[in-house]
């Protein structure tokens, strides 16, 4: 028994240190980018392991991307391309570039490769083609959704997802939702709000489109340096088409007066441009 006593002592010591390390890891892992274990497992034997061990993560992600890109150019090995591209995303989940290009590649290109692999457009029936297109678009969109979460809601990824939803899935409501989320994010692309409203408009949810666009213009776009005159013009067109009464319309902006072709409005509705809005268009 005495022979085993020191070993038991060391066992207890290491378990104690292990508990301390567990507490330490709970704190430390919050500062580390999440590593997608499942995505990395299939490529572990190809040098990717080095990236997960310590430094070199960015570098290994870049070289994995290059390998995936070479396969993408050959347009034959769909599985290999997707695997390497997804691995690059998993290695560096905070990089918008990898998510965006992988998502768009899956959604836009890989369905064509698949149809070509099955014998070409002439051989594959139309409805099967449509099914393949939709399947890959859905997969691309799922990947973009993952990227949106990993990058903390990148507006560029939201806009890409909106594009896939609109052009590939023909789902205007979903696309409008992505565009709306992109527009409400810091650093949103200039077209996001307009496209969100336009897609809702196309769905015949005209009043909803106008109300959201108007609220967004008042809250955000009006404060841009130029006051977002193109968006205001879109809003004016919507007001015309909705035949809104004058008092229900957006108040006329002081800098809007000089615009030719605008209908006259009651003078009490005139507001000046906010100070944060910068220079007047005059």
């Amino acid at each position: 028994m005495r022979r085993w006593l020191p070993w038991c002592g060391f066992g207890v010591l290491f378990l104690g240190v292990g508990l301390l390390a567990e507490l330490s890891w709970r704190h430390a892992r919050l500062c580390l980018p999440e590593i997608g274990r499942r995505q990395l497992e299939p490529t572990v034997g190809q040098g990717v392991l080095l990236g997960t061990l310590g430094g070199f993560r960015t570098v290994v992600a870049d070289f994995t991307w290059i390998r995936g890109y070479v396969l993408w150019e050959q347009k034959t090995d769909r599985a290999g391309t997707e695997l390497l591209m997804r691995t690059a995303c998993a290695l560096d989940p905070r990089s918008r570039f990898f998510w965006e290009n992988t998502g768009l590649s899956i959604a836009n290109d890989m369905a064509h490769w698949e149809i070509r692999r099955r014998g070409g457009y002439a051989k594959v029936p139309r409805d099967i083609q449509e099914h393949v297109f939709r399947t890959y678009a859905r997969r691309g969109l799922d990947l973009l959704d993952e990227g949106i979460v990993s990058t903390g809601g990148s507006p560029a990824l939201l806009a890409s997802a909106a594009l896939v939803a609109e052009l590939k899935l023909k789902d205007l409501a979903l696309s409008a939702d992505y565009y709306r989320r992109a527009a409400e994010t810091r650093g949103a692309p200039w077209f996001a709000a307009r496209f969100a409203a336009a897609n809702l408009w196309k769905l015949d949810r005209r009043r909803e489109a106008y109300n959201w666009y108007r609220a967004h213009w008042l809250k955000t776009l009006r404060l841009e340096e130029d006051g977002s005159p193109d968006d205001l013009k879109e809003l004016r067109d919507m007001e015309q088409e909705l035949r809104l009464p004058w008092l229900a319309r957006l108040p006329r902006q002081s800098w809007e007066m000089a615009q030719p072709g605008l209908p006259a409005m009651p003078s009490e509705n005139v507001t000046t441009k906010p100070s944060a809005g910068g220079q007047s268009r005059k």
Partner: peptide, 22 residues
């Protein structure tokens, strides 16, 4: 030049961290 979509500083830093680790 082989870097995609990261900030330059992150790429340089990762190279250094990798060298230090390896």
């Amino acid at each position: 030049v082989f870097d995609f979509g990261h900030s330059e500083l992150k790429f340089i830093a990762d190279f250094g961290f990798g060298g230090l680790f390896l």
